[in-house]
Design a binder for these strands. Structure first.
Lengths: 274, 274
DNA sequence: GCAAATTTGTTCGTATGTATT
DNA sequence: CAATACATACGAACAAATTTG
């Protein structure tokens, strides 16, 4: 009897889920039923369910019950560049990313434009001084109407004074900001660097994506630094921060020669052998 | 009084942490002290601490107390290829990945080799039939002695019968498996595709990485499918599944022309504006 | 090296609130 | 409105881990 009771009850339920006895979407026995079945107190039952909830196996709905989570068909976004076009996944027209499993409608609302002082992170990536003025363009993005990502791009304010005035207008730049900067300022993106990390969403993000209010579902944060050419080599001119919930997004990177199309989706992975 | 009490207590503590009043590593007041301070029951205090724990702000140590989490300096791994060498980040000699902030010692233990039947996932990626025999080579990898990743590579068993016998030996292939296959079978990797997703670790992974036994810290799972050339275009010949904890790993992808060196690390990110 | 004190972990019981059907 | 089901909150007791004396 080494393991605590709530843990054993959780394992019992996990087995029922993984064996397929409890299918996705199915309702678990109520706390009261589980209480009788395992001869435990309601708090202990709730601890067991909390264990399953933290692992994303079940979700509770007040007034209804506890249910086995439905697997979400993931959005698959390609991050690597088609370098012949000079653009990367994640930036076609209007800063959209190509998404696999086509016929999906990607949209974004009107960008929210602000002039800000560069934070330490932004300054570091753009190689400017902390506090230097930058333009921030923030957008909410959707696929088939469901919230998909929050994206904020930062540009040095210099670009505006140099003539790229549309940067501070709250409109979509139809041709795409990169093309716009190329046309107006002759700034051509020659490469970019993505940094991927995972963290807990903040409140704004949790609300936008309708994530559970515990920190259970986390978010990808992808920082894309765009570079243009100079005599001293490539220098950064744009930073884009995109946030995606990890529970419904995957990313793909292609390198070298790869087949053009994807294979059909298959569910689980089999990691290692114990 | 819309918000529950445990939530308000959690916010109170969060403020103290984010304001720097409680520094990383500092001990929070004990449950008993918080109980008196907020005039709440111990269980309510524990709910508040659970809220902070789920968000990765604090960690509890039985017999000691609750502490503000220390930020971990992340391992930064480059995934994109230096395609002139034909190899990608993630596969230099002995399947090591370059890790930023050099002077770090990457090691791996002796691979565990098994012959298995291809799971649905493996079969799909390698474009073979489910149940077809494959060789699986599993390794634990460390950086500076700390567990860094678990990696399993799958190859069709055909490769062994065709002469690549070292694939089924439990030794490191010093020259690297890709070079070995090139030398023996003239199989040259011309490209690869990475798929990145995040999920809750299984028990083996949690144990190896010493992750807390709730599902709070999740893992990256990176599937790398390697392709070689054929008359019908690139076809897959290798699948590598790597698992990394999200709390201490970040990934970088370069595309086009980018500066060779990284900028100094800066802590936080500032996502969006409300 | 052991015993006591401290601190979090588990489990019970009970009552009341809130969301949904 | 009533019944059902989960959410919050209180109180209490004992267990397990760690530090301290």
């Amino acid at each position: 009897m080494a393991e605590p009771m709530y843990w054993r009850i959780a394992q019992d339920l996990r087995m029922e889920i993984e064996s397929g006895h409890l299918r996705p979407g199915a309702q678990l026995p109520t706390e009261l039923e589980l209480r009788e079945r395992h001869d435990a107190s309601r708090n202990t039952i709730r601890d067991a369910i909390k264990w399953l909830t933290n692992r994303g196996l079940v979700e509770t709905r007040p007034g209804q019950g506890t249910f086995v989570v439905q697997k979400i068909t993931p959005f698959v976004t390609t991050l690597s560049a088609h370098w012949d076009t000079g653009l990367g996944g994640g930036e076609g027209k209007a800063a959209f990313v190509e998404v696999e499993a086509g016929n999906r409608l990607a949209e974004a609302d009107i960008p929210m434009v602000e002039m800000q002082k560069a934070s330490a992170e932004v300054a570091s990536r753009l190689v400017i001084k902390e506090g230097d003025p930058v333009v921030s363009r923030h957008q909410r993005r959707y696929i088939d109407g469901t919230p998909w990502s929050l994206q904020t791009s930062f540009y040095p304010l210099d670009f505006v004074t140099q003539g790229a005035r549309r940067l501070i207008e709250a409109d979509n730049i139809e041709e795409g900001t990169i093309e716009y900067l190329t046309r107006i300022l002759r700034i051509r993106q020659v490469g970019y660097r993505d940094r991927i990390r995972v963290r807990v969403p903040n409140e704004t993000e949790a609300r936008f994506f309708s994530l559970p209010d515990d920190g259970r579902v986390q978010v990808f944060e992808i920082l894309r630094t765009g570079f243009h050419d100079s005599v001293d080599g490539p220098i950064p001119f744009r930073l884009t921060v995109s946030v995606f919930p990890t529970d419904r997004n995957q990313f793909v990177i292609n390198a070298g020669t790869v087949p053009s199309r994807f294979m059909p989706e298959v569910p689980q992975v089999s990691q290692a052998t114990e």
